[in-house]
């Protein structure tokens, strides 16, 4: 069978180097999150990272496996999980989420390189299903701005505005305004800890692409598809928000740049990566417009994670290949 499950082994790169590279790439958004949401953001991220590393270490210790808890991958999972929860979450939420992410979604499947689902997203799905009242009902405004990104509307995050108040004329008239888009781009809106600032995430991601630690095809495919589909939906009246609003709001940048590109849970071939990104972006928009949740990024990536073994078969013919 033509499936290679662990790309970091396939390429002759050091796992640690890549992983810490990703951690560095996440730093701008992390510092931004402290600026936007205060020290509690750092506190929750810290708890999440410590739990992730500790869980991995203890599991490997108890089951007498090689200790790889400090290779950086658990740190990434911890940071990404914390980035995906609201800052008003109780302290135990990132702890439980990280624990689940590492134990169930990663170690039970065999550890790094063998997990089917992105551990951070699996952890997020777990806390989302368990405590939706926290995950979807406890948004807070950034310290220096309005929760909705629009002055004077303090009831909901941008995506909730879209889902629950889409008929309100006060919302409709300003949802695509430069003020809104500027706040979304900088990150000065309500949302999960690390997802709000497209700008800072982008800075980190460019570093990853330049260092070739992540593949730009998936990100471009994902975010580009959200943009195009949102544009089509906007023109046909299915969503009142324009394409820029859709790519900048919610977790599209965090998901498209950092979670869909996770080496273990994304395809290895360029063609497979394009399909992975494009299909993920499409599913995200379908959930946003027709689903029950305001946001569809995490489920779209989890959904596409399942297709990775299949997508790994999508590749150009090599020289002299005989059709089986």
């Amino acid at each position: 069978m033509y499936i290679s499950s662990s790309p970091h082994i396939r390429k002759d790169w050091n796992v640690k180097k890549i992983m810490y590279g990703v951690v560095i790439a996440l730093m701008p958004a992390f510092i931004g999150s402290i600026y936007f949401f205060g020290w509690r953001a750092a506190y929750l991220t810290f708890l999440s990272v410590v739990t992730a590393v500790l869980t991995e270490y203890l599991f490997q210790k108890i089951t007498k496996r090689k200790i790889t808890a400090f290779d950086g991958s658990a740190i990434i999972t911890g940071i990404l999980l914390a980035f995906n929860i609201p800052v008003k979450s109780p302290w135990w939420l990132p702890v439980v989420g990280s624990f689940f992410a590492i134990l169930v979604a990663k170690q039970f499947f065999g550890g790094l390189g063998y997990n089917i689902f992105n551990p951070a997203l699996a952890g997020r799905a777990f806390v989302m299903a368990s405590w939706p009242q926290i995950m979807t009902g406890r948004w807070s405004a950034p310290l220096h701005g309005s929760i909705s990104g629009i002055d004077g509307i303090t009831s909901a995050t941008p995506l909730n505005l879209l889902k629950l108040h889409a008929t309100d004329p006060a919302v409709l008239s300003r949802i695509n305004s430069p003020e809104m888009l500027k706040n979304l781009f900088i990150g000065n809106v309500g949302g999960c800890i690390g997802e709000t600032s497209a700008l800072l995430l982008l800075i980190g991601a460019i570093f990853l692409f330049v260092m070739r630690y992540a593949d730009w095809r998936i990100s471009v495919g994902y975010i580009g598809t959200v943009f195009v589909v949102a544009w089509i939906f906007y023109l046909t009246g299915l969503t009142p928000a324009g394409p820029l609003f859709h790519i900048l709001s919610g977790g599209v940048f965090l998901g498209g740049l950092f979670m869909a590109t996770d080496m273990v849970t994304s395809p290895v071939t360029p063609a497979g990566r394009w399909i992975f990104g494009i299909a993920g972006g499409l599913i995200c928009m379908l959930i946003r417009v027709w689903g029950g949740y305001p946001e569809g990024v995490s489920y779209s990536i989890l959904f596409m994670n399942m297709f990775v073994p299949l997508l790994d078969r999508v590749r150009p013919k090599y020289l002299g290949e005989v059709k089986k």
Binding site: P132, Q133, M135, T136, G137, S155, L164, H165, G292
Partner: peptide, 15 residues
């Protein structure tokens, strides 16, 4: 209340 009435909604279960 969020639709201009008098009733409290359930947190995170608006629908």
């Amino acid at each position: 209340k969020k639709d201009g009435g008098t009733l409290d909604a359930i947190t995170a279960a608006t629908i």
